[in-house]
Amino acid sequence: MINKSQLLSLPWIIMLALLNMTNLNTILYYEYPKINSVLKYNRIDEFREHLQGLQDIVGIRGTVGYVSDIDPHKEGVDFHKQVSQLQYAIAPIRIIPLEKSRFVIGIFNRSSAPENVLIPDSKLVKKFNDSLAVYVREVN
């Protein structure tokens, strides 16, 4: 038997149930039906997979520089995101400033193939795929 106070709590119970509709809606209709399509941050795994041989080139505690066809001044967020993801993927190899590094990782998603990219005083050491390569250069 439902008494008056319990009846009065009913609207609150309904409101509480509705509060969770945001989460339920997210699960059912919003993002997750796409779960098997392109994953949001699969770049880290992609870097890990393609750069497996990097340690043989630069050593397990080595350092590398980084060049990309993303302009750090115009697309700062994308540039830093790519650097951070690359750093996480290749840890414990460290990314250091380009001018101090003997080895350089190049990521070119929009422009030419790695073998056509000109990095001053450097030559291609290994091409991992059509957008990812390692170069070696002279450092004073």
Partner: peptide, 8 residues
Amino acid sequence: TAFDRESA
């Protein structure tokens, strides 16, 4: 080495 200030 995680605190190398020159790194990214």
